[in-house]
Amino acid sequence: MRDITLGQYINGDSVIHRLDPRVRLILTLAYIVILFMFNTLLQMVLALVMILLAYALVKIPVKMLLKSLKPIIPIILFTSVLNMFFIKGDVVFSFWKIAVTKQGLYYAAMMSLRVICLLAGSSLLTYTSTPIQLTSALESLFKPLSKLGLPVNDLAMMMTIALRFIPTLLEETDKIMAAQKSRGANLDTGNFIQRAKALTPILIPLFVSAFRRADELALAMECRCYNGGEGRTRLNALKIRRLDYIAVAVFTVCCVLLFMAGRLAV
């Protein structure tokens, strides 16, 4: 099922699941930033170990991680090849006109590890957070900007409604497609222009329905006293707990250790 409401979320009760989503989001961002600050292979290996430990905490099988890495293998190969062939230095071996250097191999390994860590880190965030949690985290983090006139609450409400209606509209698309196929619409053959044209009988009803839904939803929200984001309170207000402080502390210690490892390597 294409269940966008939950995204890639894996239901669980691990330490990482229990963190405040804001903390999860900030730590992920911090992790990504340090990946780009590190420039030794040792640091990258340690960063990988760090994220693998986090995966172990959530009990996500490595198989799943590997599966999500699959689409980026070409990118890894491409950057590796570029690095291997074009960085000058001590030649390890060469064939035809191309020389593979020691430095080239070193950078290729480092870059590949960086891309892998990047993906593993951001996936961990989406594995452990529902889109709705991410929305509230962003809403809360951007709250100061509402003083500058950015309608943070309204944007978050729009995001929530979008998430709420994506599955409904996908289902609706299936129904409309079935109805038009029953009337002989040919959606599978023909050249690009023919196919684009064949979409009209799907898209028009879909838009009409989306507008009707929007209209009715606006009415229903008005009936439930919605009056913009101002003055709204929340049922599940985000709250920083002791666990969150501990997580930040552990993460910071790890980062410091990694920095020091970098010094040692030089």
């Binding site: 129904k175 409309i176 079935a178 109805a179 029953s182 009337r183 009409v208």
Partner: peptide, 20 residues
């Protein structure tokens, strides 16, 4: 398949949503 499918006319639920 198409030719045979048309021997059976199917009106789905809330068919007015197919008008375009």
């Amino acid at each position: 398949l198409r030719e045979k499918r048309f021997k059976v006319g199917l009106v789905l639920q809330y068919p007015e949503y197919q008008l375009f």
